[in-house]
């Protein structure tokens, strides 16, 4: 794999983390409890992030960086 594509992958990962983890519609469990007195949703357990190496997988670089 070339340096270029490794770098692109890092960039993709950075952008994904930047957006997906705490942006968009963020629904928290505490807010859902006000709807009904039952536990409705699992959120907040997802952020198990160590170093960039543990997050990095082997998937192909996203097309978004073809520019």
């Amino acid at each position: 794999m070339s340096n270029q594509s490794e770098e692109q992958k890092e960039m993709t990962l950075l952008d994904l983390l930047d957006r997906l983890l705490d942006k968009g519609i963020v629904i928290h469990g505490d807010l859902m409890i006000s709807i009904a007195d039952i536990d409705l949703i699992y959120v907040g357990l997802r952020l198990v992030i160590g170093s960039i190496d543990t997050i990095r997988g082997e998937r192909k670089v996203d097309k978004k960086y073809g520019r």
Partner: peptide, 17 residues
Amino acid sequence: PMSFSTIYKSKESIILT
């Protein structure tokens, strides 16, 4: 877009949201 890993226990609770 929803934030990553938003998981509900039931369809009804999604409809409630």
